[in-house]
Amino acid sequence: MNTKLTIAMPKGRIFEEALELLLKAGYNLPPEFDDSRKLILDVEAEDMRFILAKPMDVATYVEHGVADVGIAGKDVLLEEERDVYELLDLRISACYLAVAGLPGTAMNDVAPKVATKYPNVAAAYFREQGEQVEIIKLNGSIELAPLIGLADRIVDIVSTGRTLVENGLVEYERIKDVTSRLIVNPVSYRIKDERINELVTRLSTVVSLEVK
Protein backbone atom coordinates (compact mmCIF):
# COMPACT_ATOMS: atom_id res chain seq x y z
CA MET A 1 0.00 0.00 0.00
CA ASN A 2 1.14 3.53 -0.73
CA THR A 3 2.54 4.99 2.46
CA LYS A 4 3.89 8.28 1.13
CA LEU A 5 2.57 11.16 3.18
CA THR A 6 1.47 14.23 1.22
CA ILE A 7 1.56 17.48 3.18
CA ALA A 8 -0.08 20.68 2.00
CA MET A 9 1.94 23.69 3.17
CA PRO A 10 0.71 27.28 3.06
CA LYS A 11 2.87 29.64 1.03
CA GLY A 12 3.94 32.94 2.55
CA ARG A 13 3.95 34.02 6.18
CA ILE A 14 3.09 30.70 7.84
CA PHE A 15 5.46 28.66 5.65
CA GLU A 16 8.69 29.65 7.40
CA GLU A 17 7.35 28.92 10.85
CA ALA A 18 5.77 25.64 9.78
CA LEU A 19 9.01 24.54 8.15
CA GLU A 20 10.98 25.41 11.27
CA LEU A 21 8.58 23.30 13.32
CA LEU A 22 9.04 20.29 11.03
CA LEU A 23 12.84 20.67 11.19
CA LYS A 24 12.72 20.86 14.97
CA ALA A 25 10.58 17.74 14.98
CA GLY A 26 13.53 16.02 13.37
CA TYR A 27 12.30 15.75 9.81
CA ASN A 28 15.17 15.68 7.37
CA LEU A 29 14.17 18.32 4.83
CA PRO A 30 16.54 19.72 2.19
CA PRO A 31 17.98 23.23 2.83
CA GLU A 32 16.92 24.64 -0.55
CA PHE A 33 13.33 23.83 0.41
CA ASP A 34 12.06 27.35 0.93
CA ASP A 35 13.60 29.21 -2.00
CA SER A 36 12.42 26.82 -4.65
CA ARG A 37 9.68 27.94 -7.01
CA LYS A 38 8.39 24.43 -7.40
CA LEU A 39 4.86 23.69 -6.25
CA ILE A 40 5.55 20.02 -5.54
CA LEU A 41 8.60 18.82 -3.65
CA ASP A 42 9.35 15.16 -3.05
CA VAL A 43 11.51 14.33 -0.06
CA GLU A 44 12.48 10.71 -0.67
CA ALA A 45 14.48 10.38 2.56
CA GLU A 46 11.30 10.91 4.60
CA ASP A 47 8.91 9.34 2.09
CA MET A 48 7.02 12.60 2.02
CA ARG A 49 5.68 14.91 -0.65
CA PHE A 50 5.08 18.58 0.02
CA ILE A 51 2.69 20.67 -2.00
CA LEU A 52 2.77 24.44 -1.71
CA ALA A 53 -0.66 26.03 -1.78
CA LYS A 54 -2.34 29.34 -1.09
CA PRO A 55 -3.14 29.37 2.65
CA MET A 56 -6.86 29.69 1.91
CA ASP A 57 -6.73 26.54 -0.25
CA VAL A 58 -4.87 24.16 2.08
CA ALA A 59 -8.06 22.82 3.70
CA THR A 60 -9.56 22.19 0.25
CA TYR A 61 -6.66 19.96 -0.83
CA VAL A 62 -6.87 18.05 2.43
CA GLU A 63 -10.65 17.63 2.34
CA HIS A 64 -10.51 16.14 -1.15
CA GLY A 65 -7.75 13.81 -0.03
CA VAL A 66 -5.11 14.88 -2.56
CA ALA A 67 -3.09 15.89 0.49
CA ASP A 68 -3.19 13.66 3.56
CA VAL A 69 -2.35 16.40 6.02
CA GLY A 70 -1.98 20.15 5.89
CA ILE A 71 -1.06 23.18 7.92
CA ALA A 72 -3.78 25.79 7.92
CA GLY A 73 -4.74 28.85 9.93
CA LYS A 74 -7.79 28.60 12.20
CA ASP A 75 -9.18 31.56 10.23
CA VAL A 76 -9.23 29.41 7.09
CA LEU A 77 -10.87 26.50 8.93
CA LEU A 78 -13.58 28.78 10.33
CA GLU A 79 -14.26 30.34 6.96
CA GLU A 80 -14.17 27.21 4.82
CA GLU A 81 -15.78 24.67 7.22
CA ARG A 82 -14.13 21.77 5.46
CA ASP A 83 -14.69 18.19 6.57
CA VAL A 84 -11.20 17.55 7.98
CA TYR A 85 -9.75 16.55 11.33
CA GLU A 86 -8.20 19.38 13.29
CA LEU A 87 -5.67 17.41 15.31
CA LEU A 88 -3.14 19.79 16.75
CA ASP A 89 -2.74 23.45 17.61
CA LEU A 90 0.75 24.23 16.32
CA ARG A 91 0.75 27.60 18.13
CA ILE A 92 2.53 29.35 15.27
CA SER A 93 1.58 32.47 13.31
CA ALA A 94 -0.54 33.75 16.16
CA CYS A 95 -2.96 36.55 15.28
CA TYR A 96 -6.68 37.17 15.68
CA LEU A 97 -9.80 38.01 13.76
CA ALA A 98 -11.23 41.40 14.64
CA VAL A 99 -13.84 43.97 13.70
CA ALA A 100 -12.30 47.35 12.83
CA GLY A 101 -13.40 50.68 11.42
CA LEU A 102 -12.81 54.43 11.46
CA PRO A 103 -12.55 55.77 15.03
CA GLY A 104 -15.67 57.19 16.66
CA THR A 105 -18.07 55.97 13.98
CA ALA A 106 -21.33 54.09 14.40
CA MET A 107 -22.74 51.57 11.98
CA ASN A 108 -25.14 52.84 9.35
CA ASP A 109 -28.73 52.42 10.61
CA VAL A 110 -30.33 51.55 7.32
CA ALA A 111 -27.87 49.15 5.76
CA PRO A 112 -24.74 48.54 7.82
CA LYS A 113 -22.04 47.17 5.56
CA VAL A 114 -19.07 44.99 6.48
CA ALA A 115 -16.19 44.33 4.08
CA THR A 116 -14.12 41.18 4.56
CA LYS A 117 -12.09 38.36 3.11
CA TYR A 118 -14.03 36.07 5.48
CA PRO A 119 -17.72 36.40 4.56
CA ASN A 120 -18.83 33.29 6.50
CA VAL A 121 -16.98 34.21 9.68
CA ALA A 122 -18.23 37.80 9.50
CA ALA A 123 -21.83 36.79 8.82
CA ALA A 124 -21.82 34.27 11.68
CA TYR A 125 -20.28 36.77 14.10
CA PHE A 126 -22.76 39.56 13.47
CA ARG A 127 -25.68 37.11 13.50
CA GLU A 128 -24.60 35.96 16.96
CA GLN A 129 -24.50 39.61 18.06
CA GLY A 130 -28.06 39.99 16.83
CA GLU A 131 -27.01 42.56 14.26
CA GLN A 132 -28.22 42.52 10.67
CA VAL A 133 -25.42 43.52 8.36
CA GLU A 134 -24.63 43.27 4.68
CA ILE A 135 -21.38 41.52 3.84
CA ILE A 136 -19.15 42.65 1.00
CA LYS A 137 -16.46 40.17 -0.05
CA LEU A 138 -13.02 41.60 -0.87
CA ASN A 139 -9.84 39.71 -1.70
CA GLY A 140 -7.23 41.93 -0.10
CA SER A 141 -6.38 45.43 1.18
CA ILE A 142 -9.52 45.27 3.27
CA GLU A 143 -8.48 48.44 5.15
CA LEU A 144 -9.40 50.44 2.06
CA ALA A 145 -13.10 49.76 2.43
CA PRO A 146 -13.95 52.07 5.38
CA LEU A 147 -11.50 54.72 4.17
CA ILE A 148 -13.27 55.28 0.90
CA GLY A 149 -16.80 54.57 2.13
CA LEU A 150 -17.43 51.08 0.82
CA ALA A 151 -18.21 49.72 4.29
CA ASP A 152 -18.69 50.84 7.93
CA ARG A 153 -16.66 48.00 9.36
CA ILE A 154 -14.16 45.40 8.26
CA VAL A 155 -13.51 41.91 9.58
CA ASP A 156 -9.91 40.91 9.09
CA ILE A 157 -6.82 39.24 10.54
CA VAL A 158 -4.82 41.41 12.94
CA SER A 159 -1.33 40.35 13.99
CA THR A 160 0.49 43.45 15.25
CA GLY A 161 -2.20 46.01 14.55
CA ARG A 162 0.24 48.17 12.62
CA THR A 163 -1.67 48.05 9.34
CA LEU A 164 -4.78 49.31 11.12
CA VAL A 165 -2.90 52.16 12.81
CA GLU A 166 -1.13 53.22 9.64
CA ASN A 167 -4.48 53.50 7.89
CA GLY A 168 -6.12 55.38 10.75
CA LEU A 169 -8.42 52.52 11.76
CA VAL A 170 -9.24 51.23 15.24
CA GLU A 171 -10.21 47.80 16.47
CA TYR A 172 -13.79 47.55 17.76
CA GLU A 173 -14.17 43.91 18.77
CA ARG A 174 -11.96 40.88 18.92
CA ILE A 175 -13.69 37.86 17.36
CA LYS A 176 -11.34 34.93 17.77
CA ASP A 177 -7.70 34.09 18.37
CA VAL A 178 -6.04 32.37 15.44
CA THR A 179 -3.08 30.00 15.25
CA SER A 180 -2.07 27.42 12.68
CA ARG A 181 -3.44 23.91 12.99
CA LEU A 182 -2.44 20.49 11.76
CA ILE A 183 -5.35 19.17 9.74
CA VAL A 184 -5.88 15.66 8.38
CA ASN A 185 -8.10 14.06 5.78
CA PRO A 186 -10.60 11.68 7.48
CA VAL A 187 -9.68 8.73 5.26
CA SER A 188 -5.91 9.28 5.58
CA TYR A 189 -6.39 9.57 9.33
CA ARG A 190 -7.58 5.96 9.36
CA ILE A 191 -5.64 4.40 6.48
CA LYS A 192 -2.26 6.04 7.17
CA ASP A 193 -2.78 6.13 10.93
CA GLU A 194 0.74 5.02 11.89
CA ARG A 195 2.50 7.71 9.88
CA ILE A 196 0.08 10.39 11.00
CA ASN A 197 0.28 9.37 14.66
CA GLU A 198 4.05 9.65 14.44
CA LEU A 199 3.83 13.11 12.89
CA VAL A 200 1.39 14.25 15.57
CA THR A 201 3.55 12.90 18.40
CA ARG A 202 6.72 14.49 17.09
CA LEU A 203 5.06 17.83 16.40
CA SER A 204 3.22 17.98 19.70
CA THR A 205 6.48 17.34 21.57
CA VAL A 206 8.06 20.31 19.81
CA VAL A 207 5.00 22.49 20.35
CA SER A 208 4.79 21.80 24.10
CA LEU A 209 8.53 22.52 24.49
CA GLU A 210 8.14 25.84 22.67
CA VAL A 211 5.31 26.93 24.92
CA LYS A 212 7.18 26.29 28.18
Partner: peptide, 26 residues
Protein backbone atom coordinates in the same frame (compact mmCIF):
# COMPACT_ATOMS: atom_id res chain seq x y z
CA UNK B 1 -12.26 3.91 16.40
CA UNK B 2 -14.14 5.44 19.32
CA UNK B 3 -14.01 8.95 17.88
CA UNK B 4 -16.43 8.22 15.03
CA UNK B 5 -19.54 10.34 15.41
CA UNK B 6 -21.13 10.33 11.95
CA UNK B 7 -24.24 12.18 13.05
CA UNK B 8 -25.37 14.11 16.13
CA UNK B 9 -28.51 12.07 16.83
CA UNK B 10 -29.25 9.48 14.16
CA UNK B 11 -27.32 6.37 15.21
CA UNK B 12 -28.14 4.46 18.37
CA UNK B 13 -25.41 1.82 18.71
CA UNK B 14 -22.57 0.30 16.72
CA UNK B 15 -21.64 2.45 13.72
CA UNK B 16 -18.95 2.23 11.05
CA UNK B 17 -17.34 3.81 8.01
CA UNK B 18 -15.47 2.18 5.12
CA UNK B 19 -12.38 3.71 3.57
CA UNK B 20 -10.22 2.91 0.55
CA UNK B 21 -6.73 4.37 0.56
CA UNK B 22 -6.84 6.28 -2.70
CA UNK B 23 -10.19 8.05 -2.25
CA UNK B 24 -10.41 11.10 0.01
CA UNK B 25 -13.99 10.43 1.14
CA UNK B 26 -15.51 7.34 2.81
Amino acid sequence: DFTIVSHMSYYSGILFEAYAGNVGFP
